[in-house]
Design a protein around this nucleic acid. Structure first.
Length: 119
DNA sequence: GCTGTGACTGGGT
DNA sequence: CACCCAGCCACAG
């Protein structure tokens, strides 16, 4: 059988899920910050691609991940951006626009809050 | 196996 | 300030 272990993701994706699960309540982070933390650099797209197929436990924190300007780019993954916005507002996150959060106020950078990657 | 597209980002025009 | 292009990697057609 080939790589039929769908539970086994690439190390990169595994890191992304680990970081997303560690996002504190009421905080938000960006795809680029996560990508940089896992050592992917500009592979921010891969972060979003990974979250698009993330497990349920990660999906609970996935709404805390937005793009570099705080826009809920993946809001439609919840069926509608309003759903994602509601989840963030429920955590006390402030919005500067209909679907744009205040990163200056709630940005959580894993590179600054989390210890350096060391396996 | 090449092409297009995507929950992105940064820089340029 | 708004739009465009190049870079990144993975997956679908």
């Amino acid at each position: 059988m080939s790589q039929t272990n769908e539970k086994e993701r690439s190390p990169f994706v595994n890191r992304v899920f680990a970081v997303v699960r560690q996002i504190p309540f009421g905080r938000v982070t960006t795809y680029g910050r996560i990508a940089h933390y896992v050592g992917a650099g500009r592979s921010a797209r891969m972060v979003g691609y990974a979250l698009r197929n993330c497990p349920d436990d990660v999906s609970e924190n996935a709404h805390r991940v937005v793009n570099r300007i705080g826009v809920l780019t993946g809001g439609w993954s919840w069926g509608h951006p309003a759903i994602m916005r509601g989840l963030l507002e429920d955590e006390g996150v402030t919005f500067i626009d209909e679907y744009q959060v205040d990163l200056e106020r709630h940005l959580w950078d894993p590179n600054d809050e989390l210890p350096p990657l060391d396996e």
